[in-house]
């Protein structure tokens, strides 16, 4: 009762295992529902009707870090929030990725002061930086697609 009845006999597809794994990872990447500041509103816009991030296999935002693959750090991270952020990151199961959304998360942005962590890469390792203050939803989606490119390049021998 699945695709094989609709599409006929699919036969056999031969493929490299790492390609299948990477393909499946990119098409069902669940981001963590975690907004910090202004960028969180744009992240919500990206989820909502006009931009509809579920086209990229992301309709499910998981509130729990233990069910998510991708952390979108949407907004400025204060010194008080930094340890919490790291704690959340540590709870995420492998494999996991991080997108630093916006200037504040990438490098501190306009807030070069005592309260803000100057770039979230001091707290968690970042895979993709998205520029903008805040980035448009399209920019976030572009960042996610860029992350997919990165994930598709991953090699099995590096996982072990």
């Amino acid at each position: 009762m699945g695709i094989e009845q609709k599409a006929g006999n699919m036969g056999v597809v031969t493929l490299k295992l790492e390609e299948v794994i990477n393909w499946s990872r990119t098409n069902a990447m669940w981001p963590m529902l975690f907004g910090l500041a202004c960028c969180a509103i744009e992240m919500m816009s990206a989820q909502a009707s006009n931009f509809d991030m579920s086209r990229f296999g992301m309709e499910l935002m998981r509130p729990s870090p233990r069910q998510s693959d991708l952390m979108i750090v949407a907004g400025r991270v204060s010194r008080k929030m930094g340890p919490v952020l790291r704690w959340l990151y540590d709870q995420m199961p492998e494999p996991k990725w991080v997108i630093a959304m916006g200037d504040c998360a990438s490098c501190g942005g306009v807030f070069n002061n005592y309260a803000i962590v100057q770039g979230v890469d001091e707290v968690v390792p970042v895979d993709v930086y998205v520029a903008g203050c805040p980035p448009r939803p399209e920019a976030l989606i572009h960042g996610i697609v860029t992350l997919y490119e990165k994930v598709k390049e991953e090699k099995m021998k590096d996982w072990a």
Binding site: G75, V110, F111, Y114
Partner: peptide
């Protein structure tokens, strides 16, 4: 305080017009 940004302090360090960005 988890989003404390230091905006007030940072505005003191900028001119009136630049501080508007904050």
């Amino acid at each position: 305080g988890f989003l404390h940004t230091g905006i007030e302090k940072n505005m003191e360090a900028k001119t009136y017009l630049k501080a508007e960005v904050m």
